[in-house]
Nucleic acid binder design. Structure first.
Length: 354
DNA sequence: AACTCGGGGGA
DNA sequence: TCCCCAGAGTT
């Protein structure tokens, strides 16, 4: 039997041996058995987000909301404020809603079946599999971006891993190779995906299972996986109003659905035309005290680009406040969830009040 | 199946 | 610049 064939059979063992030596120190991996709530919070935070970005948020989160109960009864604004800067804010809202359901329906204990977990908001097939395998020791697959990439290379899968056909094929393959304990194996694959089998230039020279890897043997490690490109972000022009009264700024709470839901912003008009956004801002909020913008910034989201400009505006005589329109001092607005680039504008605008 | 939803880090 | 990342929900 040739070495490569033998390695193909043994790659799971080789991977597990490698990862046990690696012993990564992560805040959500501190003890055995794992705290299911910690696993849950970390998996939600890690969706589409790098480990290094998550670490400080995870520690702050656990400090503020140590248990499912604490999260369930927290103010939504504090939940969003704690998540501010991490992105994909529906994750935070869904996490709290799910915590409320776990509290009321399951007595504060995260359920241990795939169907019950996937019925909770924010928990899909990947996260359910991660919780079941890592926190509860069940033999369940958890197919994330790392696993799609690694299996595409290991088994020379040329299907597009972003499409359901490719994902189905790889999920089937993972199911066939999944050992016990699956949690250790799933974590080992994620470690390999972050440390070695990285997207652009995989470090095959350091890889413990390169001899079992079809892509490496065939010299295709840089061309796999096949993945569709994302389309270019759409560009918008955003005019922001700085309206002051009694050393406070007027601020607006965004709708509870859609982009940056329920987060606060300076009153703004967004449009595909720069001129129209500024024109409409003055129509709606009043006469400009200076026709020139006093602050500009371009912010790139994953699917939109906002070209922002801020204007000092003399307030109209009548501004009808409601729960979504309030005055905040620069001290006060550091404690509310600020919408994306508005956090940057808020930090800058503090000096106007001095 | 295609689209929305954030932000930051690396080459 | 461009690309990617421990995905889920909606249409």
């Amino acid at each position: 039997m040739s070495k490569s064939i033998k390695s193909k059979e043994n790659w799971v063992e080789l991977l597990l041996a490698w990862s046990s030596c690696l012993d990564r120190e992560l805040p959500w991996r501190e003890r055995y058995p794992r705290n299911p709530y910690y696993v849950w919070v970390s998996e939600i935070m890690l969706q589409q987000t790098r480990t290094e970005a998550v670490k400080p948020y995870f520690n702050t989160w656990i400090h503020k909301f140590p248990t499912v109960h604490d999260l369930a009864y927290a103010e939504e604004s504090e939940v969003l404020h704690t998540w501010q800067g991490l992105g994909y804010y529906n994750r935070a809202r869904n996490l709290q809603r799910a915590a409320q359901e776990v509290e009321s329906k399951y007595g504060g204990n995260l359920p241990e079946t795939r169907s019950e977990l996937e019925s909770l908001p924010g928990i899909g097939s990947y996260t359910a599999g991660a919780i079941l395998s890592i926190a509860y020791g069940q033999r369940e697959v958890a197919v994330d971006g790392n696993i799609l990439r690694i299996y595409s290379r290991l088994y020379n899968i040329e299907e597009d891993i972003m499409k359901s056909k490719g994902k189905r094929k790889i999920t089937q393959l993972v199911e066939e190779t999944l050992p016990i304990p699956a949690g250790i194996f799933n974590e080992a694959l994620m470690d390999l995906g972050q440390e070695i089998c990285i997207p652009k230039y995989p470090k095959c020279g350091e890889c413990p299972i390169s001899m079992a890897c079809d892509a490496y043997v065939l010299g295709k490690e840089k061309t796999l996986p096949i993945k569709t490109k994302k389309k270019a972000p759409k560009e918008y022009y955003v005019a922001c109003a700085l309206i002051m009264k009694d050393n406070k700024f007027l601020m607006h709470k965004r709708a509870d659905k859609g982009m940056l839901a329920s987060m606060w912003e300076f009153p703004m008009i967004i449009d595909e035309s720069a001129d129209k956004s500024v024109h409409d801002l003055f129509i709606l909020w009043g006469e400009e005290s200076n026709v020139d913008s006093i602050w500009t910034y371009s912010h790139t989201f994953s699917h939109q680009i906002w070209h922002m400009s801020a204007y000092l505006i003399k307030q109209k005589n009548q501004i009808v406040l409601d729960k979504n329109l309030k005055w905040f001092s620069s001290e006060e607005y550091m404690h509310i969830p600020l919408a994306g680039p508005h956090a940057r504008l808020a930090a800058w605008a503090k000096k106007i009040l001095k």
